[in-house]
């Protein structure tokens, strides 16, 4: 054959290559690839686990957020209620105080009126009594003018 091409040697090379391919496949390629696949699976499972945990954490976070919002709303409502109650209580107290003040004023006015009437009545009674005494003295004493003056002085002292 030209170029020293030898069919037998070509077949020997084929056999050699077949042995090499099979040997390298079973000894190196397959186990290394299997390990690479295993590692990929391992990291994929870790990744999936992490993703699941993250999703769970997100869910818990969302729940907490919802609870926080709920609590905020509750607090807001309670605060509004409390403010309303305070407002109501203040208004009640104010109304009560006004009522008390009005009653005090009415009572004071009534008492003042009563006092005034009593003083007036006492003074009228006193005047009547003085007038009776003066009349009595005028009727029974010599100098009625002096007696009158004495009685008048006494009456001033009494008024003071």
């Amino acid at each position: 054959m030209p170029l020293n091409i030898d069919l037998q040697q070509i077949l020997l090379h084929w056999m050699n290559l077949a042995i090499l391919t099979g040997g390298l496949y079973f000894l190196l390629f397959k186990p290394v690839k299997a390990f690479m696949v295993k590692r990929e699976e391992h990291y994929r499972s870790l990744d999936e686990e992490a993703a699941a945990r993250l999703a769970e954490a997100e869910k818990i976070k969302a729940e907490c957020q919802a609870k926080l919002e709920e609590a905020d709303e509750e607090i807001r409502q309670e605060r509004a209620k409390a403010q309303q109650a305070i407002q109501q209580s203040t208004e009640d107290q104010l109304a009560q105080a006004k009522e008390q003040a009005r009653q005090i004023v009415v009572h004071a006015q009534a008492e003042a009126e009563h006092s005034r009437e009593r003083v007036l009545r006492d003074s009228q009674r006193e005047l009547r009594k003085l007038a009776a005494q003066a009349t009595k003295k005028l009727a029974f004493h010599a100098d009625p003018f002096d007696q009158f003056l004495d009685l008048a002085e006494e009456g001033e002292e009494y008024e003071e």
Binding site: N4, I5, Q9, I10, H13, W14, L17, A18
Partner: peptide, 15 residues
């Protein structure tokens, strides 16, 4: 080198 032999080169090419 094995492949500098024409038979080896032909074997690899044909395979």
């Amino acid at each position: 080198a094995p492949l500098s032999d024409v038979n080896a080169a032909i074997a690899l090419g044909t395979l």
